[in-house]
C-alpha cells in the first residue's frame, strides 16, 4: 500500500517536474499549447472532484468554465489592464454562484436525471450568452488588454505559463488534501453508498452541494485562465461539446484518481492535435471529430479503467485474478 502510494507520488512529481522544465526547451507554440493543456487539466480536476470524488456525473461542467471565462472578459476594463487580484476571485465566485444554483436544483435528482438536468442547465447558460447582447452573441467578446498581477503581465506567454503552472499545482494539492479530509472521506462514502451514509447520520445533500460548488469554482478558475490565454470568449465555451470533452478527459485518464485527470487532459489534447494534424491526415484532418469519436468508443470498450489502470490491466494478464481484484478495489478508491 505504502509502496504504491510512493510510486503514485513519484509519478505525479515527475509530471510536475517535466512541466517545470518544458518552457526552457519548448517553442513558443509548444509553451502555448502546454498552457492550454494545463488549463484543461484544472478543468478536468474540477470534474474529477464530482465524478470520481463524489459519484456525481455532471454533464454541464462547461457552463462553469464558460462563466468564469465570460466574467473575466466582461469585468476587464476596456483600455487598461485589469487586476488579476480582482478578476480571478470574481470569475471564480461567479462560477461558484451559478454552480450553487444549479447544484441546489439538480442535486434533488439522481442518476440519469442528474446527468440530463446538469446538461440542461448548462444549455441554459449557453443560451443566455448566445441569444442576448450581454455576451456579444455568437461572435463572443474580446479581452483587449490582458490583466496584470503586480509586475507580472499575463499577456506574456511565459508569465501565463508559470501562473497556470502554479495554479494547477495549487488545485491538485488542494484536492489531494481535500480527499483525505473528513469532508473528502464523506464524499467518497456518498459515492459508494449514499443510502448508507444517510443511515449513518450524514445529511448528504449539503455535502454534495458543497462539492458541486467547489467544483464549479475550480472550473471557473480554469475558465478565467482560458479567457486570459485566448483573449476572447464565445458561446462554444459553454457548449455541451466542451462538457463532453472534459468528461472524456477524466475517463480517458481514469476515474477516481486525481492524476487520471492530469493524464487525461494531456492525452486528450495530444489526440486532438494528432487528429487535427494536416501533416498526418491531410484533407481528412478537417473531420477530426470522427477520429476523436472512434477513440472515445474504443476507449470505453477497451480501457474501462482509463490510462491510469493500464499498467494494472497489463499486469492482469501476467498475474491473473488476484491482481485484478485488488485493482478493481483500486478503481473505486478516490485517492490520487
Amino acid at each position: 500500500m505504502t509502496n504504491n502510494d510512493t510510486s503514485k507520488s513519484v509519478f505525479v512529481a515527475a509530471i510536475f517536474a517535466a512541466l517545470a522544465i518544458y518552457p526552457f526547451t519548448g517553442s513558443e507554440f509548444g509553451t502555448d499549447l502546454v498552457t492550454t493543456t494545463m488549463v484543461f487539466a484544472i478543468f478536468a480536476l474540477s470534474l474529477e472532484l464530482l465524478v470520481g470524488g463524489t459519484g456525481l456525473v455532471c454533464f454541464g461542467q462547461a457552463a462553469f468554465f464558460g462563466i468564469g471565462a465570460y466574467s473575466a472578459v466582461l469585468l476587464s476594463p476596456q483600455y487598461d489592464p485589469g487586476s488579476v487580484a480582482i478578476l480571478l476571485p470574481a470569475a471564480v465566485l461567479t462560477a461558484a454562484l451559478y454552480a450553487l444554483f444549479v447544484g441546489a436544483l439538480s442535486l434533488r435528482t439522481k442518476g440519469v436525471y442528474f446527468i440530463m438536468v446538469t446538461l440542461a442547465f448548462a444549455q441554459m447558460a449557453y443560451f443566455v450568452v448566445h441569444d442576448t447582447s450581454l455576451g456579444g452573441g455568437t461572435d463572443g467578446i474580446y479581452m483587449t488588454v490582458k490583466p496584470t498581477l503586480g509586475a507580472i503581465d499575463l499577456g506574456d506567454t511565459q508569465a501565463l505559463y508559470w501562473v497556470t503552472y502554479v495554479l494547477l499545482i495549487a488545485v491538485f494539492v488542494f484536492l489531494a488534501v481535500l480527499s483525505r479530509s473528513r469532508f473528502g472521506r464523506a464524499l467518497a462514502g456518498i459515492r459508494v453508498n449514499e443510502q448508507r451514509m444517510r443511515a449513518t447520520g450524514f445529511s448528504t445533500y449539503p455535502y454534495k452541494l458543497a462539492a458541486f460548488t467547489i467544483s464549479g469554482a475550480i472550473a471557473g478558475l480554469g475558465g478565467f485562465l482560458f479567457a486570459v490565454k485566448d483573449g476572447a470568449v464565445n458561446p462554444e465555451l459553454m457548449s455541451w461539446h466542451l462538457s463532453g470533452s472534459v468528461l472524456v478527459m477524466i475517463i480517458l485518464g481514469g476515474i477516481g484518481h486525481l492524476r487520471g485527470a492530469l493524464i487525461g487532459a494531456f492525452a486528450f489534447v495530444l489526440l486532438e492535435e494528432l487528429f487535427k494534424s494536416e501533416a498526418i491526415f491531410g484533407e481528412f484532418s478537417k473531420h477530426w471529430h470522427l477520429g476523436l469519436g472512434m477513440t472515445i468508443i474504443a476507449s470505453v470498450a477497451l480501457l474501462p479503467r482509463g490510462l491510469v489502470g493500464l499498467p494494472g490491466q497489463w499486469g492482469q494478464h501476467l498475474l491473473g485474478r488476484a491482481t485484478r481484484r485488488a485493482e478493481d478495489m483500486e478503481v473505486q478508491n478516490a485517492k490520487a
Binding site: L178, G184, A186, T200, G201
Partner: peptide
C-alpha cells in the same frame, strides 16, 4: 465500503458524530 480498510470504514461511520466538513 469495499475499497476502504476496516478501520476506514468504521472511522467514516464514527465521523458522523463529529463531521467537521469544514476542516478540509
Amino acid at each position: 465500503y469495499p475499497s476502504f480498510s476496516v478501520m476506514e470504514n468504521c472511522r467514516l461511520a464514527a465521523q458522523a458524530r463529529k463531521p467537521a466538513p469544514w476542516a478540509w
